[in-house]
Design a binder for these strands. Structure first.
Lengths: 189, 189
DNA sequence: CTTGTATTTAGTACCTGCTACTAATAATTA
DNA sequence: TAATTATTAGTAGCAGGTACTAAATACAAG
């Protein structure tokens, strides 16, 4: 029984990382009480681990879904848009997490993969807003929580307001998904 | 030409609201420079408009994203399951909200509709875990934020581990979506 | 047991971005 | 011109820190 009581430095720092990962909204004071050490110790720990202060952490959480979402002209995209040639192609990365998966099998639910593909397809279309008309998709192999999904979208044809986009998603070199979307553009003018 | 120069109180406060709506990450100091008034004036304005301080604003943005991610990403079934005959059919209801929609057009993003359909399709399958193999879907008409989506799923054929499920989504009497899914069951035994 | 090193605690000065308050000054309106 | 409204100035205090110095404590090895 060595559950309670003070931890040594290494285990405290391990716990600290976990704790702040799970909940970044904790002050040094809270942490010092939780670990039964002084505030200064917590600050030394953060310094050694390279963890920023509370306000910085909150700003990061806020910025993640904001800065990127806003900067891409209001297009909410699932995953991180890392390359984009409007009207031609685009690439996004989605880091999957345990919350996206079935807890039993650790396999990522299909709609997350679909969402990444569809939102990327929309992002590459050179139009204010796009609606999905039709899509034809195939999941080639299961995705596990933690896998990093790399989606590549390519506009293959444009006919009036209809945009034909192909999206492929890979994990490393293995293709796990492919989808054909027909998107309908709506020009707000 | 009255573009530049100081604004009067009313217009300044209108601008202030807009500005902070678009970008909440601005300090009073930044604002005081932008409007060419003292910091105290900005603070009086915020007080009158009921706008919280920078740190509080950031915290709100952070909290929103946190909740959003947890609630959208973490749910087993998208929508509310109101009827289910395992292996045969099921019905779910999804109340759409403005967050699910493009802010410009108020039209609900397709992947939310897809998610409702897919998760319902999975729920009706009489198996521990199911994966989507293929799907073929069509959005028939746009869904607006606030619309209540009623999804009906029906298992049309079972061949080994492959389950063929059709899903239709209606708003009142109008069909807005149809999808054919081939789900692959995995029995964990 | 003592010496040396690692770890922890204490304390101070300073920082940002505020709140809450008082008081004075400038601009506008009646 | 007087009254009212809007703006500016300044002070004290707060949260949640950084950055630094110095002292106390713990633990290991000779």
């Amino acid at each position: 029984m060595k559950k309670t009581g003070k931890l040594n430095k290494a285990s405290r720092q391990r716990k600290l990382l976990e704790l702040l990962e799970a909940d970044p909204f904790v002050t040094d004071e809270d942490l010092s009480e939780k670990f039964m050490v002084s505030i200064q110790t917590i600050r030394l720990d953060r310094l050694e681990l390279g963890i920023p202060e509370l306000r910085e952490r909150i700003k990061q959480v806020a910025g993640k879904n904001y800065q990127k979402v806003r900067s891409i002209v209001g297009t909410e995209i699932i995953g991180e848009l890392i390359d984009l040639s409007l009207g031609e192609r685009g690439i996004s990365i989605l880091q999957t997490t345990p919350e996206m998966a079935f807890s039993k099998t650790n396999i990522v639910r299909g709609h997350h993969i679909f969402s990444q593909a569809e939102s990327l397809a929309m992002a590459v279309i050179d139009a204010d807003v796009a609606l999905t008309g039709v899509s034809n998709i195939k999941y080639l192999s299961p995705v596990r929580a933690g896998d990093k999904l790399i989606a590549k979208a390519e506009v293959v044809r444009v006919r009036g307001n209809n945009h034909f986009v192909h999206v492929k998603i890979n994990i490393n070199q293995d293709q796990v998904f492919r989808g054909k979307f027909i998107l309908v553009a709506i020009n707000s003018k």
